[in-house]
Write a protein that binds this DNA or RNA. Structure first.
Lengths: 188, 188
DNA sequence: CCTTTTGGCTAATATCATTAGCCTTAAGTT
DNA sequence: AACTTAAGGCTAATGATATTAGCCAAAAGG
């Protein structure tokens, strides 16, 4: 494993514990037992480059996880599995999730490229459901909106009662997918 | 209008244009034509206090807007109107929206208090629909997850094609509310 | 044995946020 | 009118952090 990758791994551990916004050159260096300037030997772009690398790692992990989750499932079950997989990733890697959802550079080319990979897994499930191109996009956005929104809100403690979060999520996924499939009844 | 309020107004204008994360003592002072230390005459707590004040303003505005949106409407229509109102707020005040959704202090007492006000408007509509207590909570969380998630993703440019965002949102709201009402058919 | 790459270090600079302490002006008070 | 106080601003100083420049040791490879 390259030193660069070692550093990214440590950063991921850190942000999952302390939050993405608390990541700094100073704390990374401390955690690694080196002095701040040494980090620039690996990331000339400084903190920005490190954060970017974390996002790339994040997108790739999510891509893999979502793709795997739908293997062997079809239609609603596949969609549902993907929703659960995404939320599960958010729980496993809250910091990484925060990074890729809300700290996207508004104009990053790289992110666009990588996002396409993730989207493609979702698209292929949607293909099997006979949606039109336009509807596929609406479905995709709706699911992303719900799952990413719900996950981020729960990770931030924005829902009062922590107890029944799993049921709330299950309820929401069911409702959304029910509504989506219902709109499709008289089509394909 | 007190000087304090004037400053908050300017900050809101700034974050709606530049994003919440770019708000700094330096830029606020520049924008006001004063020197950075002068700001501490109005906000002894520094940047943190200013950001907190912005969130309070934000919660109050949203509360009002959502409550108004549902006046004279009932059942699905009321729910739908609230979803649209929340997204509309996000478009009108992207920076404020960002602040209150994703930069909540995890443990702020104040926020909890204020959030309750907002939630109460939503709850009263849900009451009219005959949901059980538990289901009301699930519905509320699902709607918040979807609307806040969708809005934040679109504001960040995370959905490729900007053109059809309105339709995608309408599609998602319909699907979700359809699913919610369907689960309710054989109840009350 | 020489050379290059890797990974680290110290010292110096720039940018902010924040604190301390001073000053002016306008509003009240006696 | 003279005094006092509060508002709102300023300069100078401190402290944290990111970043740059330039030096150094040790390992890898010829």
């Amino acid at each position: 494993m390259t030193r660069k990758q070692e550093i990214i791994d440590v950063c991921i551990e850190m942000i999952d514990k302390e939050g993405f916004l608390n990541l700094s050159i100073k704390t990374i260096a401390e955690r690694l037992g080196i002095k701040p300037p040494s980090l620039y030997k690996h990331f000339q772009g400084g903190l920005d480059e490190i954060k970017e690398a974390i996002k790339v790692y994040g997108w790739n992990s999510i891509d893999i996880k979502i793709a795997k989750s739908a293997v062997g499932k079809s239609r609603e079950d596949g969609l549902k599995a993907m929703c659960y997989a995404l939320r599960e990733f958010a729980h496993e890697h809250p910091g990484v999730f925060e990074a890729i959802c809300w700290h996207n550079s508004y104009t990053s080319e790289l992110n666009h490229e990588i996002t396409k990979g993730v989207i493609s897994s979702l698209y292929s499930i949607l293909d099997s459901l006979g949606f039109s191109e336009a509807v596929k996009m609406h479905v995709l956005r709706s699911l992303r909106g719900f799952v990413e929104g719900f996950s981020m809100l729960e990770l931030h403690g924005s829902f009062g009662d922590e107890i029944t979060l799993d049921e709330s999520f299950a309820y929401g996924v069911d409702a959304l997918i029910t509504g989506i499939m219902k709109g499709q009844e008289n089509v394909g």
